[in-house]
Amino acid sequence: MTCIPGKPVVDQAPPSAREMMIIAIGLTAVCLVAAMILGGLYFFTQPAKEHNLHMREEAMIRGLLGLTPQARIQEVRRYLKREGKDVQVIYLTGKKLAQLELDGKEVAALDVPNDVAIAGAAEIKDEWVKTQVKVSNPEHLKYAGRFFVGIEGTQPVGYVVEGVTLGFKTWIRFFMAIDSAFTIQGVEIIEHEEDPGLGAEIVQRYFKNQFAGRSFEDIEKISVTKDPLPKEWQLALEQLGDMPFRPWLEKHREMLPKNPNIYAITGSTISSTAVTVGIKTALGNFRKRMNIVGNYL
């Protein structure tokens, strides 16, 4: 169609049936080829993609808890069931599917088949839970978080809790490793969108390792300070990660009481506070929940 200034626009003739057919066939052919290419690629790459994600999480959990290669990691998933005003908490552990009232009273507990317990993909677990828990509307059963248990032989040696907290712009997702006495062994930031050079510094050892070695009581009363980070403490913080948690704590134990608070990142008090509040909340919730779910592990 040509459009010359000063002249009326010439109407384009409607496409003939033949032309329309050719257009339809051409588009269909291109779409078919596209579907074949993408379908084939998906088939070959999807297992590798899921495997990568799983391996990355597992490596991070093993590193945080300092597990031996023989140790096993068991995921515990938490769901919320809402039917009107009635809310139930559901835990899927390696052994049991426990349906509980909010105060911890057991409604039902089922044994978990082995193939579900060891499944790597979250979908398999979620699908199985959906078949077991009766709800009037699938929307009423929602996934609500997870944690991991590190098991050496048959004994749980530590936990890694996944937590989220609202950062400067959007959610910060983190892993927090805890021993059986609820002392923090380490923190790892999994996902965040803080500003580079400012809030993004939360992933650095000199910030995230400030939580390591703190007991439940320490964390309960911890706050964020804008004082400068002492050089000596910073050097100590940089070492955790190169050396495992236990020897690190032995070496630097006396420095913890001297630095009772979290030193904020310069120019990023919001991000620093967000992580601190997130850790506090996640640890408090985890302790409450462990009182109940501990019986089903």
């Binding site: 290419i37 993408l38 690629l41 998906y42 070959f44 790459t45 999807q46 590798a48 993609k49 990568n52």
Partner: peptide, 10 residues
């Protein structure tokens, strides 16, 4: 999409 899948997998 192909790039996305290949990067994510390998």
């Amino acid at each position: 999409s192909a790039m996305d899948m290949i990067l994510a997998a390998y």
